[in-house]
Structures are given as structure tokens and as C-alpha cells.
Design a protein around this nucleic acid. Sequence first.
RNA 1: GUGAGCGUAGCUCAACCGGUUAGAGCACUGGACUGUGGCUCCAGGGGUUGAGGGUUCAAGUCCCUUCGCUCACCCCA
Length: 422
Amino acid sequence: MAVQSIKGFKDLLPSETERWGQIEREARRLFSLYGYEEIRTPILEFTEVFSRSIGEVTDIVEKEMYTFPDRDGRSVTMRPEGTAGVVRACIEHALPSKSPAHKLFYMGPMFRHERPQAGRLRQFHQIGVEVLGPSGPSVDVEVIALLADILDSLEVRDGSLLLNSIGCPVCRPDYLASLRAFLEERRDRFCENCRRRIAANTLRVLDCKVPACREATADAPAFSQHLCPACDAHFDAVRRGLTGLGIDFVPAPRLVRGLDYYTRTTFEWVTDRLGAQNAVAAGGRYDGLARALGGPDLPGSGFALGVERLVSLCAGPLPPPQPLAFFALLGEEAAGLADPVVRRMRREGIRVERDLLGGSLKSQLRRADKAGASLVVIIGDEEIKRGAAVVRDMNEKTQTESSLSDLGEIIARRLRPSSSGQ
RNA sequence: GUGAGCGUAGCUCAACCGGUUAGAGCACUGGACUGUGGCUCCAGGGGUUGAGGGUUCAAGUCCCUUCGCUCACCCCA
């Protein structure tokens, strides 16, 4: 059998890359409007960057990372998410000392060795933002508004924003203790997984899908009732901020995050149109991350958006391509005459295709039609004798003849009938 | 990592209870129209039926192994 791509690694063919391009352009446009700057960090990092930030006991670190010894023996890992590398870079380049606030975005591939399924790949792509420095609630609100605007600009509107607060190092221990006590009391009502989680990943029990577990936790203590005054005020301000912007959200007391570094605000944009993987974007505040990486206190807030998942939700129209002129050429001599014209037109910003396959005029016209050409320039022996070219309008089915020297200007004028101001 | 389903042409799918030369639509190429696209009609190229083994007079079809894909669990973007 011929060689194939690796399981969970997908090719993006031209039929799909247009949508990707649209998404990336829209995102970049909004990032620029919001004042976010791009950062590009390496795909490969020392393993500690992830194990120390994401959390040693998470699934990602325990069994999903592409980790291997580099040739010099040091353990390296292909990034499973974007935040850790961005924060590492900020610490390494002492960004906090250069400016008290950094608003960054990134886009690119992430890698997790999971079993592929709908909406889940081993190489997948995220677009994300990180705001490093400011710790106030308005940062969380801005980040969520930015996410909402990206989705809105792509006409992805049916879905909901889940919002929660998971406290901070001040209030979380108390809450965890009372939650754990609550769970322990009804330990025998939980699935095997959850029994293990009670000690290992207490918050996760709240998020279990097993109905019996859901029932057992129906009246579990909610974090929102146990927040310390500072976290409570922060959460309240985020909610008021979102309401003020007209951004709907649903309080989700069970929404927890799998990654250790989250504090306070946590949110997720979910839809029911994606199969089992319902999260399109997720994020929150991670005030403890920079310290975990050995850096200074550096509050952060951001989100990551799954591009593949977003693509499958996008049904809106793609931007129409620039009008196209197509050269149908019969014979070597015609090609020799046409090529300089074609090149000149391209350098002037006109979209021009030149037939490369040859064959009958009929087959070249067929290709021109399929390529979506609005004008076709035909040059054959008869035209060469007259030093001319036939210009066929594919929509009107009309033809005119013009001299080779005027060709460029005539095509340019006809392809941009009204927007000559450009 | 666990479980289930599915692998037939480039794509989407047929092929009865196992039966003789594996078909169709779309796509592609050519012709009708010798230099004029889309529509129509005609023709043509394309297959190790995922791979390997077994049962049988006979396997796309049944059995085993293996590879791949898909979906779900888990987890997450």
C-alpha cells in the first residue's frame, strides 16, 4: 500500500483551506482592532514547560503528550496547548519588566496522542489569546467579548457561553475540603471513575456524564457559595461586565477546567452540533501559571479556540474570489506572445490564469469555465496573423477583438468596471 | 488505553441464499460541434473488492489474522 499520513494527522486540501483562510483573516482583523499582537513560540518545548504548568496528574501530561528524548538526551514535548509556551516566552524575555500588560494572540498546531474521533485529532489547530499582567475582571470580559466577536463575524451564533468561577488559592482549599467531604459521604453512589476522582481530581466529579453521578451531586456545594470576598467580587464584576455588553451567558457551577493552572473565571463556548466534543473554545484566568514555571507573579487570562471544530460550524458564505481572466493559447507562438502580457497583468494585480495543459480550444474553454473565468483571451494562428487577440465574455457570450498591445488595459478595465479608484 | 461499526473505481454507493466477465451515478478524457465553455446525447479510460490466510466445485459475500477508517467511552480545543 502507498504511504499514508499518520493516524489523527490530516491533510487540508484546497477545498478546505479557503475556509481556514477566512477564519484566520477574521481573527487577525479583530485581534488588531482589540490591540492584540501576534506571538509565535516553538512547537517543541522542554517537557517541564508542560508538566509543570498543565499539572502532573492530568490526562494530557500523563498519557497524551508526544514526548521523546532529543538527540542530546533531554526530554522534549510537542506542545499539547498554547498557553504554557506563551507564558514561558514572556518570562524568558522578561516581558513583564518591559510593560505591565501584554495582549498576545497565536495560531497554530497542537499535538495530543488521543484516539481520534469527531472533533478530535492528534494534530489540531488552535487560535488563542493571552493577556498577561493585568488581573482585573475587565480583562476577562474583554477576552470573552473578543471571542464572541470572532464567532459572530463568522456567523457562528447558535451555541452558548458557560461561565463559572473556580476560586483562587485562598478559597479553593476550603471549598475542595467541603466538596470532598460531601462526595465522600455518598461515595458508593458514584461510578468507579468518580470514586477515584474524589481524591485525585475532586472538581471533575461535578462534571461527570454518568446520570447516577449527576444525581448524587445535584445538591453538592457550589463554588459560587464558597468564594472568598475577592473572588466573589471579581466574578460578580465579570458577570456585570458581560451583561453590560449584551453578551449572554449561562452560569455553569459544574464547569471546571481540566488544567491545573486556572483560577477564578472559567468559561467555555459550547454547541450541540459537534457530536461528543461540544467545546469550540474555552478559557479562563490562570494567575498561578507563571509562578509554576519558575517566573514572577504574572496574572493571565485567555482562551483557545479549536479551529477544526469552528470550521465544522461555519456555514456562512466565503468571500468571492477576485474576477479571473483566462488565456487560452493555441500553439507555441501564441504562448510566446501571451506570456509577457500575462506576467505584466499579474504584476498589476489582476488575477490571470494561463492554460498549461494545451489541447483543443474546446477543452481550454472548459477549463476556463471551471476555473470561474469571467473573461477568456483566445490567441491562435488567425489572431497572430492580425497581431490581435479575441476577448470572450463568458457570462455574456460575446467576443471582441483587440490588439495585443491594448490587451492588458482592456482586460483590467473590464474586470474592474466600477472600482477604478483602487 | 477500552468498546462498537465499517472497508468494492478519484468520490458516493449497488451486486439476492456464496454462483460464472464486479456495476451505476458523479468526476475525468474524447466525440457529436475539424478554433468556442455550461445543457443534452454517445463513447472511452479507470478495480490486487484494504492486506494475508482458511472453508468451498465456486468467496466482494462465510471464518481467522492484520492494517486502516469512523463513532463512542475517557479526556478535551
